[in-house]
Amino acid sequence: MNQPLPFGPPGQTGRSDLTQVMQKVVRGDKQAFSTLYDALAPLVFGITIKVVRDRAQSEEVTQEVMIDLWRQAARYRPEAGSVTTWAATIAHRRAVDRVRSAQASADREQAQAARDHSPAYDEVAEQVQTRLESEQVRRCLRGLTELQRQAVTLAYYQGLTYREVAESLRAPLPTIKTRMRDGLIRLRDCMGVTT
């Protein structure tokens, strides 16, 4: 069962008369706008409902378009087309904007829902990965010379600086830097790290 349009029936004003009515609307004539409203609201609603496909939103868009016609009346140029064409263009743009806005809102909500329902952090898998990496590091450390292993261990596991490592091992600083560099290169190669 079709409900009647929320707007009055199309007025008896002819399309050619709408240009004159529009000129009065530009001067702020509220009665002329009422005439314009009666003549164009059904057309605007028809265009809007075809695009938006939701009666309530189409009614809102129609109201917005009619307010635009009132506010932008001075922008109407008869040489560019009829008042009906101008109103139809505004109605179509507003309807498309409403659909795009609704789609963007739905996309944002869907993305948020997807983020909220992301798989739980797999703590067990993370622990296994950490254990495997630790074992690989220990195995690779065993492949270093004793001097390289001492230097790397003091620097990376005890947090000593190169100078502190040199003092701890009673070796010259350049020697420690060389041991560290060579040891780190061997570790990198052993662990399959590419640079």
Rank of each mutant, 00 (worst) to 15 (best):
Q129I: 12
H92S: 12
A113F: 12
H92V: 00
L173Y: 11
V152C: 12
R186E: 10
K30N: 09
T48I: 08
I90T: 00
V21Q: 02
I176L: 07
E109Y: 08
Y76A: 06
R179M: 13
V51N: 03
Q23H: 06
P9R: 10
I49D: 02
G159F: 03
Q3N: 15
V51M: 05
Q148D: 03
Y157V: 14
M191E: 04
R170D: 15
T153K: 01
L169C: 09
V44L: 02
D122W: 02
V25A: 01
Q112S: 13
T19W: 08
E59T: 07
Q12G: 14
A151W: 05
A32P: 03
R93T: 08
A114R: 11
A104P: 02
T85H: 08
A171Y: 04
I185T: 12
Q129G: 07
S58P: 04
V137R: 03
V26P: 04
L40N: 02
A114E: 12
V128I: 13
Q148P: 00
A120K: 08
V26T: 00
L40T: 05
V52G: 08
E109V: 10
Q12C: 05
G143K: 12
C190W: 05
G183D: 03
A80R: 12
A39R: 12
E60H: 14
Q12F: 09
P119M: 03
A106N: 06
V21I: 09
P78D: 01
R75N: 09
L173T: 11
Q72E: 09
L154A: 05
L43E: 06
E59R: 03
R170M: 12
P10I: 15
A91V: 04
Q57V: 13
P174C: 06
V61E: 07
P174S: 11
E123T: 14
T178C: 13
Q136Y: 05
D182F: 04
R15V: 15
S168P: 03
T19R: 14
Q23Y: 04
T85M: 06
T161R: 01
V152N: 09
E126I: 06
R108G: 05
A104N: 13
V65M: 06
Y157R: 10
I90G: 00
V99R: 00
